[in-house]
Design a protein around this nucleic acid. Structure first.
Length: 600
RNA sequence: GGUCCUGUGGAGCAGUUGGAGUGCUCGCCGCCCUGUCAAGGCGGAGGUCGCGGGUUCAAGUCCCGUCAGGACCGCCA
């Protein structure tokens, strides 16, 4: 080793020791006759004192080696801000290992740079303590997960990243195949089918910290490549997977966020989540629950509500505490907000802070009777605002109210940012209607109906429930999974309902169905969105912060400038323009199976 | 595909009613300085106001387009 000690670990007890340190010049304070340098390495920072002129030439981010003696600082010069603040290293020898050009962005915890500049110089960005800490936290999270899973006899198994499309709803990234021009690999959207094959293979307990790919638009919490902690077990029930998920989550939060998760984590059914919070990933840090008014308002003359009710739909409301004090401009702003998400508007009534009298444009359209009881029905007090949503489709109106609920919490500052609220959302529906009138799987088509529905889901597909579960924290879904179908007859019936013909099924995932002929065990699994989990644990608001070299919104990497054009030669070799031969045994990616969605 | 925000020396910002590239903090270069810790003092360099077009006597500022970055919707768990 070039160094004998780590800079950040030196303490008063090391006084008198001669040490060799190596690291970077974090800051230089040149007083002429004495020069102070904050020397930074991965362990932290220590002050080095130079009395020789040669340190005058040092600049920020020079990489240096220093030999010196650890001394207690002169009385009165201690720095309680630093872990190493009681001591300093008096240098006797300085070696410049490499110089640094003037920096394109400050390597300084107190100053922020724009995102694309940070990414272009990510290696400098990561010298800062915050970004570095996020990656170190992620490494520790990986370690914790592995400790738990290996203690439970899991096998860490790698699955292919050059494969065929897995049945998720997202667009695939495609890779041309030189050896078979005109054919293409897909990068996996998840290892779903492979982990199920590993269950057939008798591995019984599988996990993988798996890179997954989806060619969809970006968000603050979405990148085209992302990581899942992917888990599958044989001979288990939903409760077994939930118990495992709870151990992982509670260990992560206790060690990395200093928070003790109360176990068991509360479970809420999907239907309750939608009814009460208008979301399948409710943020339980605050109340503001939805109230259904379909029956209360039945018979109203207000056409917007009556139309929804007569269509067999839903009318509901959500209360904004103190919302009556909003200005007209703020209330109008809610209309723009609603339109931005595709709604026609957001009806509201404000309750006068003094009298409790309902006011606002919608109040004129409601009968005196409906108005007088409104506050009690929705649980509003004088000074509150009541927002309404109505639609022929129950879920559509509830989701609008759910989004309004989140916005209310933000604007009314109802969120305790230091708190954590976990829940499992269980009993998700198996199917939902497609626009064409058919059915599509809410999770994926290998998710098992629950005990109650496994033999009769065809009788009421809209009511059938699945053994599917999502774990949610503060309104973020950090993981989800399901019990899988392992019986061939059930799988065939599900495909049948989804309108997937046996031919299509065989084309798309015949290899899995084939495998299921040979004694597949009952199995179930879960996948935790690892980037999002680490983002939350590290207190960041973008998953870019927990990814070493992330991409910008346009799918661009400012550091490497990927993606790049290819040469004509590369294009030719890759066979991009080749037409596939008649699809005999090598079906392409053009299977016309019914749409299937969702992973895990 | 849509809505919105941003783009000004190396970094982060300000820039009024359209009136000379004006300003602030940091960094950079030089000099001074023996106890600082976001050191301090003095001096200096550094600009096609993202790019293109338009309106105007005059555009960093107004309009249109475009590029880049960001937030959200659609999409996607």
């Amino acid at each position: 080793m070039i160094r004998t000690h780590d800079a950040g670990t030196l303490r008063a007890s090391d006084a008198g020791t001669t040490v060799t340190l190596a690291g970077w010049v974090a800051r230089r304070r040149d007083h002429g006759g004495v020069i102070f340098v904050d020397l930074r390495d991965a362990s932290g920072v220590v002050q080095v004192v130079f009395r020789e002129e040669d340190a005058h030439a040092l600049r920020n981010e020079f990489c240096v080696k220093v030999v010196g003696e650890v001394n207690a600082r002169p009385a009165g010069n201690e720095n309680p801000e630093l872990a190493t603040g009681e001591i300093e290293v008096v240098a006797s020898e300085l070696t410049v290992l490499s110089e640094a050009a003037p920096l394109p962005l400050p390597v300084d915890d107190t100053i922020t740079a724009s995102d694309d500049l940070r990414l272009k110089y990510r290696y400098l960005d990561l010298r800062r303590s915050g970004p570095a800490k996020a990656l170190r936290l992620r490494s520790r999270a990986n370690q914790i997960a592995r400790e738990i899973l290996h203690a439970r006899d899991f096998n860490e198994i790698e699955t292919p990243t050059l494969t065929r499309s897995t049945p998720e709803g997202a667009r695939d990234f495609l890779v041309p195949v030189r050896l078979q021009p005109g054919t293409w690999y897909a990068l996996p959207q998840s290892p779903q089918l492979f982990k199920q094959l590993l269950m057939v293979a008798g591995m019984e307990r599988y996990y993988q910290i798996a890179r997954c790919y989806r060619d969809e638009d970006f968000r603050a919490d979405r990148q085209p490549e992302f990581t899942q902690l992917d888990i599958e077990m044989s001979f288990v029930t939903q409760d077994d997977i939930i118990e495992l998920g709870e151990e992982i989550v509670s260990r992560l939060w206790s060690e990395l966020a200093d928070y003790q998760v109360q176990l068991p984590i509360p479970r809420i059914t999907w239907t309750d989540a939608m009814n009460r919070y208008g979301s399948d990933k409710p943020d339980l840090r605050y109340g503001v629950e939805l109230v259904e008014l379909t029956e209360y308002l039945r018979g109203t003359a207000f056409r917007v509500f009556a139309g929804a009710i007569d269509a067999g739909g839903y009318v509901g409301a959500v209360v904004m505490p103190g919302g009556a004090s909003q200005t007209r401009k703020e209330l109008d702003g809610w209309q723009d907000w609603a339109k931005a998400r595709g709604a026609r508007g957001l009806a509201y009534v404000v309750l006068d802070a003094e009298t409790g009298e309902p006011k606002g444009p919608v109040a004129k359209n409601l009968s005196a009777e409906h108005l007088s009881g409104l506050a009690d029905v929705v649980g509003a007090k004088p000074g509150d605002a009541v927002f309404f949503a109505a639609a022929g489709e129950r879920r559509e109106a509830q989701e609008l109210l759910g989004a309004a609920r989140i916005e209310i919490a933000k604007r009314a500052k109802l969120i305790d940012e230091s708190s954590w609220a976990f829940c499992w959302v269980v009993d998700a529906p198996m199917f939902e209607k497609t626009d064409e009138g058919g059915w599509t799987a809410v999770h994926h088509p290998f998710t098992s109906p629950n005990e109650e529905w496994i033999d009769n889901f065809e009788t009421a597909p809209d009511k059938a429930l699945a053994y599917a579960y999502d774990i949610v924290v503060n309104g973020n879904e950090i993981g989800g999974g399901s019990v899988r179908i392992h019986r061939g007859d059930v799988q065939s019936r599900v495909f049948d309902l989804l309108g997937i013909t046996p031919e299509e099924a065989a084309d798309k995932f015949g290899f899995l169905l084939e495998a299921f002929k040979y004694g597949p065990p009952p199995h179930a699994g879960i996948a935790l969105g690892w980037d999002r989990t680490c983002m939350l644990l590290s207190g960041n608001e973008s998953i870019r912060e927990v990814i070493a070299f992330p991409k910008t919104r346009g799918g661009f990497d400012p550091l490497t400038t990927a993606p790049t054009p290819i040469t004509a030669q590369q294009r030719l070799e890759a066979g991009i323009d080749a037409k596939p031969k008649a699809a005999a045994g090598t079906p392409g990616t053009d299977g016309q199976a019914a749409p299937v969605q969702h992973s895990n």
